[in-house]
Write a protein that binds this DNA or RNA. Structure first.
Lengths: 200, 200
DNA sequence: GGCCCTATTGACCAAGCGGTCAATAAATAC
DNA sequence: GTATTTATTGACCGCTTGGTCAATAGGGCC
């Protein structure tokens, strides 16, 4: 029976939240219009009324996931660390732990990531988010070497390396969590970053 | 018209090859029984005759992908390098370039990887392959520190870090290849590994 | 030469999918 | 108080999917 209505923005948010939950549990494969509708206790027609096509719902969901994962916030405790190398180490450590906190969300991002190979819009969205995220690291790094490259590494290259180290752990751990301890990994990352900024 | 037959092993190999090509082009989503059959110029019933269920075909394909990506061969030029740290650097460099050579295959592996979250068999298969791959690095690393931990890093942790560095580049580059140069990244990786094995 | 086994095919099926549409009820405009 | 617009629903459609099955053709065996 049509009747009990709701504000449009609220509905869209409700549907998006349901889509997020469905995607976390069943993956993007399981993200069907009907599953989202059932989760939100709505008819599947209504979901298609608010998001004209399924992929629009998917792209809106991707935006939410990107905002949650690939956005870097630099807290005061870290910003005020004097030595640039220690500041970088603290930042990498923070991000590594943050990514590991919600492995299902990172896995969802990774699902979108692989689909970016066949979908230009997805590729562009994640590419932009990743580029922004990398640049944030690059800013911290360029101070480290006072503008010029440190050793044989450019700051852009080092930023990409930092990103590899950060997402590398949860991605590996999502397969065999018992064999790969987070503390062990984190210690090695810190060890590897220990001698940065010295002349080669 | 049933008639022109073929040896069983040959047929399975032919179907598997077709499945590989389909998956490379269209992703795991596009890997339908009918698409594989069409690619191999066979009826889709025949594909299901040789691989009883679709997921058996998928698992066989995963084995092939794993054998192509997560298997480490240590050539003589690298094995004979005297300094352990340089040997590791050369090995990481080789693997990084090898992974980047076939980005579509790595992307396919990554697609399986994310599906491991919802499928125990896939998770176990990739987990085993990854563990084996990591162990191979660990062997090279343990010589580096003569058995004891180097700095604050365990050899297991360092092996995982090496894997992160190796797969991190192609995974990032698959989204924005023009912004992230391989040489730049590789130089930074070498720079980061430069001071390994020194006391902290 | 008849027999069985294996490989192969096309026809078929039920389920699930994204998407459309007419009907309807509530909010809003006039 | 009527007309219009906006949300909402269930019924429906066409398509694709994985899977089954009976029919059939060839190869090997005795």
């Amino acid at each position: 029976m049509p009747g009990q209505r709701e504000n449009q923005a609220t509905r869209q948010e409700q549907i998006l939240e349901a889509a997020y939950e469905v995607a976390l549990r069943r993956g993007i494969d399981g993200l069907t219009v009907r599953a989202v509708a059932a989760r939100a206790r709505l008819s599947h027609s209504l979901v298609l009324f608010h998001f004209k096509r399924k992929d629009q719902l998917g792209l809106a969901l991707l935006d939410r996931v990107l905002a949650g994962t690939l956005s870097l916030t630099l807290p005061n405790e870290i910003r005020t660390i004097r030595k640039p190398r220690e500041r970088l180490q603290a930042l990498v450590s923070q991000e590594l732990q943050r990514m590991s906190e919600e492995p299902r969300r990172l896995r969802l991002l990774l699902e979108f990531w692989t689909r970016g190979g066949h979908n230009a819009v997805i590729r562009q969205k994640i590419g932009a988010g990743l580029s922004e995220y990398r640049t944030a690291f690059q800013d911290v790094l360029s101070e480290m070497s006072n503008g010029k490259t440190s050793g044989r590494s450019s700051s852009a290259g080092l930023a990409a390396v930092a990103v590899s180290l950060i997402i590398g752990y949860p991605v590996q751990a999502m397969l065999d969590p018992e064999r790969l301890g987070e503390g062990e990994y984190l210690a090695s990352v810190q060890g590897v970053l220990e001698h940065l900024g010295l002349a080669a």
